[in-house]
Protein backbone atom coordinates (compact mmCIF):
# COMPACT_ATOMS: atom_id res chain seq x y z
CA UNK A 1 0.00 0.00 0.00
CA UNK A 2 2.86 2.37 -0.74
CA UNK A 3 0.52 3.55 -3.53
CA UNK A 4 -1.72 5.06 -0.83
CA UNK A 5 0.85 7.77 -0.06
CA UNK A 6 1.09 8.78 -3.71
CA UNK A 7 -2.70 8.65 -4.18
CA UNK A 8 -3.02 11.02 -1.23
CA UNK A 9 -0.57 13.42 -2.87
CA UNK A 10 -2.61 13.34 -6.11
CA UNK A 11 -5.99 14.02 -4.52
CA UNK A 12 -4.55 16.71 -2.20
CA UNK A 13 -2.78 18.47 -5.07
CA UNK A 14 -5.91 18.33 -7.26
CA UNK A 15 -8.06 19.84 -4.52
CA UNK A 16 -5.51 22.54 -3.68
CA UNK A 17 -4.93 23.36 -7.36
CA UNK A 18 -8.68 23.61 -7.99
CA UNK A 19 -9.06 25.94 -5.01
CA UNK A 20 -6.16 28.10 -6.18
CA UNK A 21 -7.72 28.26 -9.66
CA UNK A 22 -11.10 29.15 -8.18
CA UNK A 23 -12.84 26.07 -9.56
CA UNK A 24 -16.19 25.69 -7.83
CA UNK A 25 -16.47 22.04 -8.75
CA UNK A 26 -13.57 19.67 -9.37
CA UNK A 27 -14.73 17.38 -12.18
CA UNK A 28 -11.73 15.55 -13.58
CA UNK A 29 -8.07 14.95 -12.78
CA UNK A 30 -5.70 13.30 -15.21
CA UNK A 31 -3.07 11.07 -13.62
CA UNK A 32 -0.16 9.56 -15.52
CA UNK A 33 1.60 6.44 -14.24
CA UNK A 34 5.19 6.28 -15.41
CA UNK A 35 6.06 2.81 -16.64
CA UNK A 36 9.33 2.80 -14.69
CA UNK A 37 7.69 3.01 -11.24
CA UNK A 38 5.12 0.33 -12.02
CA UNK A 39 2.32 1.62 -9.81
CA UNK A 40 -0.47 -0.90 -9.15
CA UNK A 41 -3.56 0.74 -10.64
CA UNK A 42 -6.04 -1.33 -8.63
CA UNK A 43 -4.44 -0.40 -5.29
CA UNK A 44 -4.08 3.24 -6.33
CA UNK A 45 -7.76 3.52 -7.35
CA UNK A 46 -8.82 1.79 -4.13
CA UNK A 47 -6.78 4.32 -2.14
CA UNK A 48 -8.29 7.23 -4.07
CA UNK A 49 -11.80 6.01 -3.27
CA UNK A 50 -10.94 5.75 0.43
CA UNK A 51 -9.31 9.19 0.40
CA UNK A 52 -12.34 10.87 -1.17
CA UNK A 53 -13.95 10.78 2.29
CA UNK A 54 -11.20 13.05 3.63
CA UNK A 55 -11.41 15.42 0.64
CA UNK A 56 -15.07 16.40 0.08
CA UNK A 57 -14.04 18.75 -2.74
CA UNK A 58 -12.99 15.67 -4.73
CA UNK A 59 -16.20 13.72 -4.02
CA UNK A 60 -17.40 13.91 -7.63
CA UNK A 61 -14.02 14.08 -9.31
CA UNK A 62 -13.27 11.55 -12.00
CA UNK A 63 -9.67 10.33 -12.02
CA UNK A 64 -8.60 9.51 -15.56
CA UNK A 65 -5.50 7.34 -15.35
CA UNK A 66 -3.13 6.81 -18.24
CA UNK A 67 0.16 5.00 -18.61
CA UNK A 68 3.26 6.77 -19.85
CA UNK A 69 5.96 4.59 -21.42
CA UNK A 70 9.42 5.01 -19.93
CA UNK A 71 12.10 6.49 -22.16
CA UNK A 72 15.79 6.95 -21.49
CA UNK A 73 18.63 8.94 -23.03
CA UNK A 74 22.22 7.95 -22.31
CA UNK A 75 24.31 10.97 -21.30
CA UNK A 76 27.51 9.23 -22.38
CA UNK A 77 26.70 7.89 -25.85
CA UNK A 78 23.35 9.63 -26.56
CA UNK A 79 21.63 6.27 -27.17
CA UNK A 80 17.85 6.39 -26.72
CA UNK A 81 16.24 3.29 -25.24
CA UNK A 82 13.07 1.96 -23.64
CA UNK A 83 12.37 -0.15 -20.57
CA UNK A 84 11.83 -3.22 -22.72
CA UNK A 85 15.52 -3.16 -23.65
CA UNK A 86 16.55 -3.47 -19.99
CA UNK A 87 16.81 -6.47 -17.69
CA UNK A 88 16.02 -6.38 -13.99
CA UNK A 89 15.28 -8.92 -11.28
CA UNK A 90 12.03 -8.94 -9.30
CA UNK A 91 13.85 -7.41 -6.30
CA UNK A 92 15.38 -4.67 -8.43
CA UNK A 93 11.97 -3.88 -9.94
CA UNK A 94 10.57 -3.61 -6.40
CA UNK A 95 13.32 -1.17 -5.35
CA UNK A 96 12.70 0.94 -8.47
CA UNK A 97 8.98 0.82 -7.66
CA UNK A 98 9.69 2.59 -4.36
CA UNK A 99 12.34 4.99 -5.69
CA UNK A 100 12.50 5.19 -9.50
CA UNK A 101 16.00 6.75 -9.28
CA UNK A 102 17.26 3.32 -8.25
CA UNK A 103 17.15 2.65 -11.99
CA UNK A 104 20.61 4.23 -12.06
CA UNK A 105 21.82 1.56 -9.64
CA UNK A 106 20.34 -1.46 -11.38
CA UNK A 107 19.95 -0.53 -15.05
CA UNK A 108 22.48 0.54 -17.65
CA UNK A 109 22.54 1.85 -21.17
CA UNK A 110 22.22 -1.15 -23.51
CA UNK A 111 24.71 0.42 -25.92
CA UNK A 112 27.59 1.52 -23.66
CA UNK A 113 26.59 0.05 -20.24
CA UNK A 114 26.72 3.43 -18.47
CA UNK A 115 24.38 4.12 -15.53
CA UNK A 116 24.57 7.82 -16.43
CA UNK A 117 21.34 8.18 -18.35
CA UNK A 118 18.39 10.54 -18.20
CA UNK A 119 14.85 9.33 -17.59
CA UNK A 120 13.18 11.46 -20.25
CA UNK A 121 9.65 10.10 -19.76
CA UNK A 122 7.62 7.67 -17.68
CA UNK A 123 9.40 8.09 -14.34
CA UNK A 124 6.59 8.14 -11.76
CA UNK A 125 3.20 9.60 -10.93
CA UNK A 126 2.22 13.05 -12.17
CA UNK A 127 -0.92 15.04 -12.86
CA UNK A 128 -1.66 15.75 -16.53
CA UNK A 129 -4.75 17.93 -16.20
CA UNK A 130 -7.32 19.28 -13.76
CA UNK A 131 -10.80 20.23 -14.98
CA UNK A 132 -13.73 21.82 -13.21
CA UNK A 133 -16.48 24.43 -13.29
CA UNK A 134 -15.71 28.03 -12.46
Amino acid sequence: MHEWALAQSVIKTAVEHAAAGRLKKLKETGVAFGELQGIDKEIFVFALEELRKQFPAAAACRFRISKEPAAFLCKVCAHKFSLKALRKTADEAEFIHFIPEMAHTFLKCPACESPDFEITAGRGVHITHIKGDR
Binding site: L6, E92, E101, H104, T105
Partner: peptide, 26 residues
Protein backbone atom coordinates in the same frame (compact mmCIF):
# COMPACT_ATOMS: atom_id res chain seq x y z
CA UNK B 1 16.62 0.06 -1.90
CA UNK B 2 20.13 -0.21 -3.36
CA UNK B 3 21.09 -3.79 -2.44
CA UNK B 4 24.47 -2.53 -1.16
CA UNK B 5 25.37 -1.20 -4.59
CA UNK B 6 26.52 2.28 -5.61
CA UNK B 7 23.85 4.94 -6.17
CA UNK B 8 25.23 7.04 -9.07
CA UNK B 9 22.80 9.95 -9.17
CA UNK B 10 23.07 13.39 -10.72
CA UNK B 11 21.79 16.32 -8.67
CA UNK B 12 18.28 16.43 -10.12
CA UNK B 13 17.94 12.68 -9.51
CA UNK B 14 19.02 13.10 -5.88
CA UNK B 15 16.35 15.75 -5.47
CA UNK B 16 13.70 13.50 -7.02
CA UNK B 17 14.67 10.59 -4.79
CA UNK B 18 14.57 12.79 -1.66
CA UNK B 19 11.13 14.15 -2.58
CA UNK B 20 9.92 10.58 -3.19
CA UNK B 21 11.17 9.41 0.21
CA UNK B 22 9.79 12.47 2.00
CA UNK B 23 6.40 11.91 0.35
CA UNK B 24 6.09 8.22 1.15
CA UNK B 25 7.81 7.87 4.54
CA UNK B 26 5.41 7.74 7.47
Amino acid sequence: FSADKAVPLRGANVSDAIIELLAITQ
